[in-house]
Design a protein around this nucleic acid. Structure first.
Lengths: 202, 202
DNA sequence: TAAGATAGTAATCGATTACTATCTTATGCG
DNA sequence: CGCATAAGATAGTAATCGATTACTATCTTA
């Protein structure tokens, strides 16, 4: 919550807007986040938002771009320098969970965006994010096969789907229980089963 | 889509309403399903809906109860009479996917309901559904341990989360691609990895 | 320090929402 | 057949939504 309502440069104001939306999504249904609510959270009038964004859809697009950049750079940083592909995947998994724990509104927004029927700009951003995520997983899975850590007959596409699905499942259970911290506890346990499912028979 | 706008008994009209909502959720975002859209789909005026439901929330509750009954009875039927716990779980998995394929609006509605912050009646129905689902899985997992099909050190809670999460992941990928049929193709491949993750080492 | 550019305010717009009051018609039962 | 009543149509309501407007405050810079 901002306090002083001073004038900000346009790009800073846009950044504050995005952060406000992310924060609001943590406590309420994204479809219920109105421009008035965003403005109030920023100590700004509702109309002023449209000085920086042409319409509400553009706000959502900016938010999803923010999420994409932060999430991808975070999992890249987590996997960086780790020799073992399986260990790298585990590091990605955990850092993803950490990211979501720190920003509980993010999965809410992504689920909300993905279930739109129309192809909005924001939805396309999310689609690109998941595609890039999948590419990173595919590379790791391939490396794991050649290194012998993973089962050589592994179905990469299914394994990538399951990786992301596992995270989604954890998030859903957390949303159900209204307890984000639960994810931190359950994540290693869920990944252990996943790891067993894709690993080579020892 | 109904054609003749004849008068229906109240309970039949309620049933038609529920089916209309399920159908509409297959093509649009649940939060965008207005009472006007529901009425139009039924060839009815908007106000007439409130002869049969006290408010919109009651419609959602009725829809989620419909989903709960149909889904639970379907997975129960699928698992019935199957001796092997693992095979029973696979049958549950596939019948769940079949259910979702036949009613693509269902996961959309459930995601939409679960991410609400407030505890609406409809959300509580979904919570009960997932709880019952989890109990069924837990029983099967226990049976699998004693029968030797499953790893005796298996983490039941994590395994149940992963089971549901796997389905959610498949649904999400399908929503992304806008292709529900894809689930049928990917489901056996995803379950194969899951099965390997929970099965006993042979 | 004058002047243009940028950022924000307050009021209001038309459209849409869930919901309701009143009138009309269909249906089933004695 | 007659008629009570359940079901639906019509025509509203108040509230809220995103977006736009005319105007003002603040910042930057020549």
């Amino acid at each position: 919550m901002e306090t002083r309502p001073r004038n900000l440069p346009a790009d800073e104001r846009r950044a504050v807007t995005v952060e406000s939306v992310v924060a609001l999504a943590g406590t309420r249904n994204p479809s219920e986040i109105t421009t008035a609510a965003i403005a109030k959270h920023m100590n700004l009038t509702q109309g002023a938002l449209f000085r920086h964004f042409p319409n509400k859809e553009a706000i959502w697009q900016a938010v999803m771009e923010w999420v994409s950049e932060r999430l991808l750079s975070r999992i890249d940083r987590a996997a960086k320098g780790i020799e073992s592909p399986l260990a790298a995947m585990e590091a990605m998994f955990m850092s993803h969970i950490e990211f979501v724990t720190g920003h509980p509104g993010v999965p809410r927004m992504m689920f909300g965006e993905l279930q739109r029927a129309e192809s909005t700009p924001a939805k396309r951003v999310v689609q690109t994010l998941i595609q890039r995520y999948g590419e990173r997983l595919d590379r790791l899975l391939e490396r794991g096969k050649t290194s012998g850590e993973l089962s050589p007959s592994l179905d990469n596409e299914a394994a990538a789907t399951l990786f992301i699905g596992t995270i989604q499942g954890l998030v859903m259970q957390a949303l159900l229980a209204g307890d984000v911290e639960r994810m931190r506890r359950d994540a290693p346990r869920a990944f252990a089963i996943y790891r067993r499912g894709i690993g080579s028979t020892r």
